[in-house]
Design a protein around this nucleic acid. Structure first.
Length: 111
DNA sequence: CGGCTGACGTAAC
DNA sequence: TGTTACGCCAGCC
């Protein structure tokens, strides 16, 4: 399975109203230092695949990739539509809604 | 083939 | 505590 296929598989499994980080995804797919590549994978994915990339933010819960969506606030709008509160490009209660694939998809690696 | 870039993360200063 | 530096890896010159 390709690097990006793994990324897509994980991102698509992010529960509604939850978010995860580039680093967590990278770590989960076996490349803990390749978080940048995860971002790149999501970047190309937005025109090759349909995945909830808006549910992926950086480690601080900041919407660093919002300017890669159509509207400047599209990413934030999508998240708020899921009940996630955003303030100044930053997710509120991030530690609460953070969804770590490493803690929820242990069986995924064997697929 | 080498250097630059980037939706990141961590360590060092 | 705020910046800077660097590793990472795929794409694009």
């Amino acid at each position: 399975m390709d690097f990006y296929e793994k990324v897509y598989s994980v991102v698509k499994q992010i529960p509604f109203g939850r978010v995860t980080t580039y680093g967590s995804i990278a770590k989960y797919i076996g490349h803990p230092k390749s978080s940048r590549t995860v971002g790149w994978a999501l970047n190309v994915s937005h025109y090759t695949k349909i995945i909830p990339a808006h549910r992926v933010v950086n480690r601080s819960g900041i919407l660093t990739g919002k300017h890669h969506f159509q509207g400047i606030n599209l990413m934030q709008q999508l998240l708020e539509n899921e009940g996630i509160e955003i303030e100044e490009n930053k997710i509120k209660n991030f530690n609460i809604i953070f969804w770590d694939p490493n803690m929820n998809l242990q069986s995924f690696k064997t697929n």
